[in-house]
Design a protein around this nucleic acid. Structure first.
Lengths: 133, 133
DNA sequence: TATAGTAGGTACCTAGAGGAAAGTAACTAC
DNA sequence: GTAGTTACTTTCCTCTAGGTACCTACTATA
């Protein structure tokens, strides 16, 4: 948070070091835990904090809070606070977040057709490594 | 979207921990430094180690080696070793890696149309946070 | 009094990713 | 015999993301 002097697009353009126009998107959309969160909100609709916490079992509340804040700041998730007792907070996908749906579908499609190729390549690589010694 | 009984959503149901069928793909394709490497190989063709090292300026040789090994193991990159003196190694995108091209294009397209929305959302969020105290 | 439910905040600590810099092999050129 | 080249490898070190555990406020319930 301390060193955000410029946005992600500026990084891609002004930073010749990256030489990769998709890096900024990757940082926003595919940073840790964000894809399960976005997928969950996209698939199961508006949810409360505990619902997300239970669905994504291995996430801790601290990290879930951090990721949700980040996604809210990036405009991908909308947070609605109801000042009741006990307090109730609901999270849902924003319009901008929903625009990622075809991208996620594309990714899922690639997974179904190519993930086994990756696994086969891994087995092949590991086996060859064993015989090579 | 919520009630997809077949396809990738079904995986989400059977694996309660992840609750996200695209997580494995993200780990493979979008782990750190992989997208600049794949982009570079995809855009500029077959390249030697030092060429990649110079193009992706901020990467260290150790990490570049690690990432290239991982990508080779996953079958996304093909490594060709020429036992000359000094040694020459060439890296190129594999068939499987090339199948990611439309996905990357999709991502780049999303970036061009929506990245500014993200930045505007960030500014809005930060400004509101300041006024809130 | 104590406990549960709710959405976090905060302090502390660890593991692991990643960076810096030097080393290695193998041969050539000088 | 020393420097140069390439593609790493190794060692050491730092930094931070993330985990654990406890804390907040408020009310209902036993």
């Amino acid at each position: 948070m301390a060193t955000e002097t410029s946005g992600p697009a500026a990084d891609a353009m002004t930073d010749p070091e990256l030489a990769c126009p998709i890096s900024p998107v990757v940082d926003i959309v595919f940073s840790r835990w964000t894809s399960p969160i976005l997928w969950s909100l996209q698939t199961f609709g508006r949810q409360r904090f505990v619902e997300l916490e239970r669905r994504i079992k291995s996430i801790t509340p601290k990290v879930l809070t951090q990721r949700l804040r980040q996604l809210e700041r990036d405009g991908l998730v909308v947070r609605t606070y109801h000042p009741e007792v006990p307090p109730r907070v609901e999270y849902e996908i924003s319009e901008l977040g929903r625009s990622l749906a075809p991208l996620f579908a594309h990714l899922a499609e690639w997974a179904t057709t190519n993930l086994e190729h990756v696994e086969r390549a891994r087995r092949h690589y590991d086996d060859a490594g064993v015989t090579r010694g």
